[in-house]
Design a protein around this nucleic acid. Sequence first.
DNA 1: GACCAGGCACATC
DNA 2: GATGTGCATGGT
Length: 220
Amino acid sequence: MTPAKAGKLLQELYEKLWQAFGPQGWWPGETPFEVALGAILTQNTNWNNVAKVMARLKAEGRLTAQALTALPEAELAGLFRPAGYYNLKARRVKNFLAVLQDRYQGAIESMAREGLEALRPVLLEVKGIGPETADSILLYALNKPTFVVDTYTFRILNRHHLAPESCTYEELRRLFMDRLRPDVGLYQEYHALLVRLGKEFCRPQPRCEDCLLQGWPDKF
DNA sequence: GACCAGGCACATC
DNA sequence: GATGTGCATGGT
């Protein structure tokens, strides 16, 4: 497929999703820190489970870097329990908080002053933050123009033959970023719309007969 | 009870 | 480089 053709299809896909679903209003979260925390807690986890944790933390006034830094890891794990993988996630959040403290004086707003190219390697260096979590934090918490690729993105693009199964994370990320204008709002909506489509129509066990994108694209 | 959910690190070959 | 495994709760 030529780059021009791929670009046209990606634009077409976005318009189809937008028309079908409208704005998704991602990411749920009132502060950049809240969004970043949610990005770690939702790893391989249904958002509903994460929402329980976030609601409790908020109610207890603990939804800040300072409050969570002050808690022992074991106590953090106890709070994260409903989100699953709670021991793992407590360690990962602690790792993130340590970098936030050491490099940005504990202030995510200070982090946001750096550019995408400087920040991405810093996040990827944190043990427990991989490419998807890093890009989620960059795009939704820090408003940097990077594209988030998740399991739904892989599945949807594979099923509709827009990308080979062998595609890596970075290759898919570049596919979007090389062919769409670097627009934070566009990237935010596009990823959220792909998740929406994936949840409704693109399950692991193929049940595509009623898929919104049935038969699309006709030719490629 | 089986399957799935907005990953990642690590071991092994 | 590819593939397999542990991590865990909660909804359908």
